[in-house]
Write a protein that binds this DNA or RNA. Structure first.
Lengths: 106, 106
DNA sequence: ACTTTGAGCAACCGATCAGTTGCACGTATA
DNA sequence: TATACGTGCAACTGATCGGTTGCTCAAAGT
């Protein structure tokens, strides 16, 4: 199974779950109350989120509290920053080309 | 069709395409040279990226150059920042709880 | 002990996805 | 004008997805 973060956050329901549990740990039932689906469907989403370590569980009696693994979210930042770097490199390159053109003109 | 950015970047091939054209505009054929798939498959990916405005086209004779729409990428930043805000709010709240506990202890 | 409650797991279903093959169309080039 | 090239589009296929229903199991409540 090729579960990665980007696939995990692709689904709107999963993004909503992430937003929900970002504020406080919640049980599957409590999470499901916020959606128009069955608890099992939410459970499936939680399994996917757990599989790619975006979420961690904490058993408390027969209840399981799910909370966000903030560190893992940074992987998205990392990708975005890599992209920004490439973009800036391109921008500098363009600047270089422009200054070269200027020089040539001289 | 519910094409949104998050679904667009869920696919690894599409992320690779984004990284490729972030540096410079490229034609579908040139892009396809970097992958083990057919040109048509890449064309499909480009259509999806175009549909959610992550990519823009520029016709040049019979060739079409695709380049990255950096502004659109910021939508990911926006979501991440919203999440960060929630996370920080939670952190402050936790701090408040801790200080309240301290006071109670006194 | 019996019942209720919270939760995960498995099997199924329709929809969507990523990829392929085949085709059509416009633009260069000979 | 005939041919090669670059591209998009449509139809098909196997795989995956998101969701439902039904089951089991363990922990709480009576």
């Amino acid at each position: 199974m090729r579960r990665d973060i980007f696939q995990a956050i692709a689904d709107p329901t999963r993004r909503a779950i992430i937003t929900l549990i970002a504020l406080q740990a919640m049980t599957p039932n409590a999470i499901a109350d916020n959606f128009n689906t069955t608890r099992q469907a939410i459970s499936k989403h939680l399994r996917i989120l757990t599989e790619c370590e975006l979420v961690k569980q904490e058993q408390q009696g027969r209840e399981i509290y799910y909370s966000l693994e903030i560190e893992k979210m940074k992987e998205i930042d990392i990708w975005m920053n890599q992209l920004r770097k490439i973009w800036e490199a391109r921008f500098n390159q363009l600047g270089h080309v422009l200054s070269t053109m200027k020089k040539t003109k001289k």
